[in-house]
Design a protein around this nucleic acid. Structure first.
Lengths: 166, 166
DNA sequence: TGCGTTTGGTTCAAGCGTCAAGTAAATTGG
DNA sequence: CCAATTTACTTGACGCTTGAACCAAACGCA
C-alpha cells in the first residue's frame, strides 16, 4: 500500500555505498559519544544533550514539551530522564506560571557545573572524530547536506534551537 | 586526566552549527527508519540490518562474531536478537564445523522473503529522506566526509562488509 | 602434554525506552 | 458557559540493551 509497492527504484551502486557509509556512522558514532561521556562525566549523551540545551537557553529554563522537541525525544522519555536528573540535583522542575498544565525544567548551579565539566571532554571527542577529520570545506559540505536532509526529516525545523542564527 | 583537561579548544561558530546539525540528523533519522520498518515490515532497523547483512553474503551465512562487527553491536545484543529471529523462523543457528565455540547464522527462505519485502519500503524511505534530498555531487561529498570520519571511528574498517568494493 | 590465556557465545539482573492509559488544565464551539 | 476536545505531562507494564559472570573450546608456549 505504500507508494513503494508499485516500483521501488533501487539505489545505484554509488548511492548504495554512500548510504552504507552513512549507516555505519549513524550506528557507531552515538555509541562512542555515549561511552566517552558516561566514562568521563557519568552522563549519557541524551542526558548531556538535555542539560546542554538548558545551559544555552537564556534563563536556563525550558518547558518540558519544548525540551522534548529540542532533544527529539518523546515526552515520556524526557519525563523519566528529568525525574532522574532532578533526583541527582542537576535540575529542578517548577510549575509554569502561565499554564497550569506545564512544567519547566531549570538548570541548577550543580547542573551547570556538570555540563561544563563534561563539555570539554565531549568537544575533544567531537573534534577527534568529526571536526578535525574534515577540512573546512568538507565540514561545510557536510553541514549543507545535513541541512537538506533535515528539511525532509523535520520540515518545521522544530528541533532547531531558536538561539541559533545560521 | 583526558588530554582535554589542559586546553579544550572550543568549536568555532561554523563548526558548532555543523555539529549541531549532525546531532539532529543522528538522533532523528534512526528513529524514523525504525518506525517505518516496524510499521511496514514488523522489523526494527537493527533486525533489518542483521537480516540484510546475511542476505548479501555469498552463502547467506555468517558467524555471530562477524555479524556483530558488521552491525556494530555487542555480541550479547546480537545473541538475543538472533534468538528471537530464530524463533520467528527468519534464520537458524548452526554450529561452525571449523570451530567448536562458534555458531553461524543462516538466513532461511522466510528470512530472505522478509528482508526483500521490507527492502522496498526501506529504500523508498532512504530515498525520500536522504538520497533524493541531495544532488549527486552532494551525495558524493557526504560519502567522502563519512569515509574520513569512519577512518577515525573504525580504523580497522572491521564494520565494512568484504563484499563491497568501493 | 599440560597450564594459562584468549576467543566465541550465552545468560541474568538492572536500567532505560516505548506505548497505552490516565489525570488535570486549557481551549474550542455550540 | 458548559461539554467535548486538545494539550501537557506522568505512570506502569513490557520489551530490549547493557554489563558482568559464566562456560566451553581453542590457542600459546614451555
Amino acid at each position: 500500500m505504500t507508494p513503494a509497492s508499485e516500483n521501488p527504484r533501487w539505489l545505484t551502486a554509488e548511492q548504495r555505498l554512500a548510504w552504507l557509509d552513512m549507516v555505519r556512522v549513524l550506528t557507531r558514532l552515538p555509541a562512542i559519544l555515549d561511552a566517552q561521556l558516561e566514562r568521563d562525566a557519568g552522563l549519557s549523551f541524551f542526558e548531556y544533550h538535555v542539560l546542554s540545551m538548558l545551559s544555552e537557553t537564556p534563563d536556563r529554563t525550558l518547558r518540558l514539551s519544548r525540551l522534548a522537541q529540542l532533544t527529539s525525544s518523546s515526552l515520556s522519555r524526557l519525563s523519566n530522564v528529568v525525574k532522574r536528573l532532578e533526583n541527582r540535583g542537576l535540575l529542578r522542575r517548577e510549575p509554569d506560571p502561565d499554564d497550569g498544565r506545564a512544567s519547566r525544567a531549570v538548570l541548577t548551579p550543580e547542573g551547570l557545573a556538570s555540563v561544563e565539566l563534561a563539555a570539554s571532554g565531549h568537544v575533544t571527542t567531537v573534534r577527534e572524530l568529526v571536526v578535525d577529520a574534515l577540512d573546512p570545506a568538507q565540514l561545510d559540505q557536510l553541514r549543507t547536506a545535513h541541512e537538506r536532509i533535515l528539511e525532509r526529516l523535520d520540515p518545521a525545523a522544530a528541533t532547531r534551537p531558536e538561539w541559533l542564527e545560521s
